[in-house]
Simulated scan of single mutants.
Amino acid sequence: MRLLYFLLFILSLIAAAPRAAHARQITEYRPLRDPVADRSGRPLWAVRSFKEDGAPHRLVVDAATLQGFDLPASDLVPRAEGEAGFWTTRLGRAVKRYTAPPYRLQNGGATRAETATDGFFLTVDLCPSKRRFERELFETAEALSPGKAVPVAVMVTGLWLESHPEEVAYLKGEVAAGRLAVTWVNHSWHHHYDPKAPLADNFLLAPGTDLRAEVLQQEQELLARGLVPSPFFRFPGLVSGAAAMKLLAELSLVPIGADAWLAKGEQPKRGSFILVHGNGNEPKGIKLALPLLKGTEVRLLPLSAAFGD
């Protein structure tokens, strides 16, 4: 009997583990675009409505700074502005510009800074993988500015989040310690890939793909872990089409491409969006990135700084 109780106790711990990993329960998740203000009077745009552990919340974006926040709905009040006002903001103009035709099959959206800059933008893809997490990449980036939070955009998939709790905890710890300033970028939920399929039928363009679910499910996964989604999205494989771009516009998201995918031999220049994989899938890119990040003149910038006023 004691053995039975012990086994039941172990099973209860196992059953509770997923709930512990998802400290917050996100339900009734839906897109919207409402002008609101916080308690200080700061103008914001509510882009998602949901309940967090049963309490009404909003995912809001400061359309001037491109920063997102998870706020209780009770902390927000409506603003007397029509939805059309969104498209006159810094964020709205970026969404409109980078989701507009012509639609390229690969590397659509923003690929580098809009204006001249003296720095680079490090974007790290975390696609589904069972390989070793590239912690050295983040440690090397942190060494660029000891004592300061180094900006990096982490393009993360839902399946990677689910299967790498220790690595997620590491990144959250580095942010809490003030060593990293992470912009959490949606990289889809599944990141489907078929090496035998043509690009036009691959990644998010694969037949039967639910584009909306791929985007919104991943946002919920981030929020469940206390991570705030940014207003940016990176297409898996940098592959997209008209329907996908139109969906991002509807969801108030800016697509992020790259002009310096290191493993493909693309050379970064000032203002480049550097693309590397931090999931162990592309060691060539990491091998090239490490000496670059050890350069004395390298300065990393937050992704939001790539967009004009």
Rank of each mutant, 00 (worst) to 15 (best):
D75C: 03
T65K: 11
D62T: 13
P35K: 07
A153K: 03
G109H: 10
L32T: 09
Y98L: 03
T27M: 04
A176K: 06
V276Y: 02
L247T: 13
A243E: 08
G226M: 01
L76C: 12
P229L: 07
A181R: 08
A80Q: 03
I286C: 05
W261Q: 13
V156L: 09
R270S: 10
E52A: 03
H57C: 05
D53Q: 04
A80E: 06
R42V: 15
S230M: 00
D210Y: 03
L122H: 02
L301E: 12
P283C: 05
D34Y: 10
Y29T: 12
V156K: 07
L44I: 04
V185H: 05
S188P: 12
R30C: 00
L180E: 04
A306H: 10
R2C: 09
S163F: 08
E134N: 14
P56D: 12
E166F: 15
T183E: 07
P291E: 09
A73H: 12
Q218R: 03
L253W: 00
F120Q: 15
D194R: 12
L76M: 10
Q67P: 05
A306R: 13
E266H: 05
G226V: 09
D62L: 11
W189S: 11
P102S: 05
A213Q: 10
A73Q: 12
I286D: 06
P195T: 07
G226I: 08
Y5V: 11
P43A: 13
N202P: 01
A73G: 14
P236M: 01
K294S: 13
S12K: 03
P78N: 14
E297Y: 13
I10T: 04
R225N: 12
L8Y: 00
K148T: 12
D194S: 09
F233Q: 02
A63L: 10
G278E: 02
H191W: 07
L275W: 14
G68D: 11
H277D: 08
E83V: 10
A242P: 11
M245Q: 08
P255Y: 04
L44W: 02
V36E: 01
L290N: 04
A224K: 02
S272K: 05
P72S: 06
A113M: 09
R30H: 05
K130I: 12
S12A: 15
L199Q: 12
D53S: 14
G237Q: 00
N202V: 06
D125T: 15
A37Y: 06
W261C: 15
L11S: 04
P43T: 15
L301M: 13
E166T: 14
L301V: 03
V239Y: 00
V47S: 03
T183M: 01
K246C: 00
L292R: 11
T183V: 01
T89M: 04
A224Q: 03
R33Q: 08
E134K: 08
V185K: 08
P56A: 05
A23R: 15
K148W: 04
L3Q: 07
L251V: 11
